[in-house]
Design a protein around this nucleic acid. Sequence first.
RNA 1: GGCCCGGUGGUCAAGCGGCUAAGACACCGCCCUUUCACGGCGGUAACACGGGUUCGAUUCCCGUCCGGGUCACCA
Length: 494
Amino acid sequence: MDMKWFDDMEARIPKGKVRTRFAPSPTGYMHIGNLRTALYTWLIARHQDGTFILRIEDTDQERLVEGATEVIYKTLRECGLTWDEGPDIGGPVAPYIQTERRDTYGRYAELLVERGHAYYCFCEKTESEEESGSFDRSADPCRSLSLEEAKARVAAGVPHVIRQKIPAGGTTTFSDAVFGDITVDNDTLDDQVLIKSDGLPTYNFANVIDDHLMGITHVVRGSEYLSSAPKYNLLYQAFGWEVPTYIHCSPVMRDAHNKMSKRHGDPSYQDLIAQGFLSQAVVNYVTLLGWSPRGEYSEREFFSLEELAQVFDIGGISKSPAIFDIEKLRYFNAKYLRELSPEDFYALAEPYLREAVKTPGIDLKLIAPLVQPRCDTLLDIAPQVDFFDALPEYSNELYCHKKMKTNEENSLEALKQVLPVLEGLSDWTYDAIHDALIGLAEKLELKNGRIMWPVRTALSGKAVTPGGAVELCHILGRDEALSRIRKGIAQLGG
RNA sequence: GGCCCGGUGGUCAAGCGGCUAAGACACCGCCCUUUCACGGCGGUAACACGGGUUCGAUUCCCGUCCGGGUCACCA
């Protein structure tokens, strides 16, 4: 064995700082649980001024998806999760794509074989599993094959895998930052495959090798990997390597029984963005799904990414699964939307407004502030502003409003009073319209609603609108507003 | 089924031996108001169950029940 090569690999490992990694498989789809893992991983690194690494785990050749890494880059960038080392920018422990590290895994696996912690196995793919749950180590003839014999068969080109040789008897204790210490009997652990017959490593093996070789100090991953974790310890021990801090996170659920999944039609990050959610809102909400700030921040729930990096602590991660609640996400999103400056909101809303309101004279900048406090997502804009282009058909019953004390008769009367007042207006400004309408109500000694409700109804044909009578008059413009009021009068039989 | 893990309102959750058991979403009511929102105020609602340990358990231990994960040459 060329030990110099191993020494060189070791020598490249950066030391002394926190180093974390997000290691997705390129599936072309960033689901919420994955995003949360990325978030926690990034947060741990940034909290300690450490290094965040992106690594692509593409060892499953059958599941490769074209353009999938682009989705990962794009999502991470949109969310503000900047990486310091990765496939696209390189780094001290490159390469960052597992298929490009192929020989490395093979060499380490062979080292393990030499040391007696792994063995070549020539058996067919696993056919039938034992029911007992505990393994009879002597059952596999390959396990006890002599090294010479095994090597001879390998040299002869016999297809094979390399398996981990789990010690017979005894226990292994694994330590997790959120679940604590977990001890299992070695006899419940199987001699898992390390190197597949295609020469590529399994996920479990590649993880251990890469995390060590990349100097990873904290590993964040889903709790579905918890039960394979003790086998990692054995691997680290066999190599004589230091075990990183493991942080297993319970899944993000769609309901009490099922994880969020593409199969069930649950939204991915991309889907949420398409549904009009803001990246920052998603990031904020998802971080809080399974983690909560402690101490002085325990009552707070709105945080920017930078603030999260400040307060994030591993101890706040929850052990139990969390159900994804789109209603609460909507609340977060609505809050983020409302707190945007009018300019920023307009920038985001403009494409949606432009799509919904096509009448040339209408100033979309006037509509934006009306819808800003009235939408949870950007998709809520269009249905609210449809009446600007064309007055919908509406029933006269719309004129009847108990609280406003309006009915068809007094609405007709109100509109008839309003028409000449507005016709006589020299300035078609918000203030002028406002003063005219309020003035009319005062003059007639009526409550404002008696005038405003009929006008708003005539202008929109809807029971609910963003903005009231004055705003709508202003935005529609003199001609259209007066025309709609006349239409209202006619429809009411006047 | 074996092994591992979890269990505070409908949901997210604080709590880490002593509290009238926080807060948020949702829901309900009131206020504000030219509709609806926004905003403000208030309300309904929880420690899965049974044993211990203790002067005292939501908190520690055991069991039961319920739920999740895992038992692949997928990750």
